[in-house]
């Protein structure tokens, strides 16, 4: 518990551009030992932040990808009854069948809690699971411990992990849950900031091309009636695609020609709408 956070300051990763405001928030959350809940539209780097924290501090990263059908117990531990049944029937393993503990496997949260070093625990897209999952998780995060019912044992954290939770804001999280987290909403990057992000990912990219691509990208995001707007990930992939094309000229952007539209728009409806807009408005 007595880890000095003062010296452990987070200041960005190698592929992650950190906004100073966000850096302050991360540091405060680490110091207060509170989970940090990040909201924001897809592509604003919520998940990447956890990766960057793990990389820069350096700590191992444990990722729990939440799925809609998930129960909290799955994330804590699993009792492998089948193997135990098999062992008791055939008895050809070295495990001690009468010792249930040997058949308990730790889930992602369990791993983070029982780890010998301090880790970063990323609980990704918590809003996907139903509310039971969040409610059950309250106590676990509050106490930083959970019980394994089968062997009546309590798992306590040796080192409180740095917990980052992301949500796509599809569902509102419950108030008690929010009460136990720090909160930040990541806004979509401004064009200037986006150019810096591009610079980090493509250090060799010419200035003009970068500017033209980013400008086009933001104009495409403005098209009305798009369900899934292209995000940072799409932009990076698109630039990658454009660079592979020897015939591509940056000057041709903005004249109603946007190649590889499918990289940016992934819903057929959006693709059609965007295509029409580009042709009509010469984006």
């Amino acid at each position: 518990m007595e880890v000095k956070y003062g010296e452990m300051r987070f200041s960005g990763g190698s592929k992650y551009l950190l906004d100073p405001e966000l850096a302050r928030i991360v540091n405060i959350s680490m110091a207060l030992e509170l989970p940090l809940l990040l909201k924001g539209e897809p592509g604003t780097g919520k998940t990447m932040l956890a990766h960057a924290i793990a990389e820069s501090l350096p700590m191992p990263l444990i990722v729990l990808n939440v799925k809609s059908s998930m129960k909290l117990v799955d994330a804590l531990y699993q009792y492998d009854t089948l193997t135990r049944l098999n062992d008791s029937r055939f008895g050809d393993s070295k495990r001690d069948v009468s010792n249930i503990e040997e058949y308990i496997k730790m889930g992602k949260i369990g791993q983070a809690f029982s780890s010998e070093r301090k880790v970063v625990l990323l609980i990704d897209e918590i809003d996907k699971a139903d509310t039971d999952f969040q409610d059950d998780m309250l106590d676990v995060l509050d106490q930083m411990s959970f019980d394994i019912i089968e062997i009546d044992k309590t798992v306590r954290t040796k080192h409180r992990p740095v917990v980052v939770i992301t949500s796509n804001a599809k569902k509102d999280l419950s108030d008690p849950f929010l009460g136990r987290c720090n909160f930040h909403h990541i806004a979509f990057p401004t064009p200037d900031f986006m150019r810096e992000i591009i610079q980090v990912h493509f250090p060799q990219l010419e200035k003009d091309l970068s500017r033209a691509c980013v400008e086009t990208f933001y104009r495409l995001r403005e098209i009305p009636g798009i369900e899934k707007k292209p995000a940072t990930r799409e932009l990076i992939n698109w630039i990658r695609a454009v660079r592979c094309d020897p015939d591509f000229r940056a000057a041709r952007l903005g004249k109603g020609e946007v190649p590889y539209l499918g990289v940016l728009f992934k819903k057929s409806n959006d693709y059609v709408v965007a295509g029409q807009h580009i042709a009509r408005l010469r984006i």
């Binding site: 302050r24 809940l37 929010l178 720090n182 909160f183």
Partner: peptide
């Protein structure tokens, strides 16, 4: 930033 991240959810 600190007050916002801690107080406003």
């Amino acid at each position: 930033t600190a007050a916002r991240t801690v107080l406003v959810k």
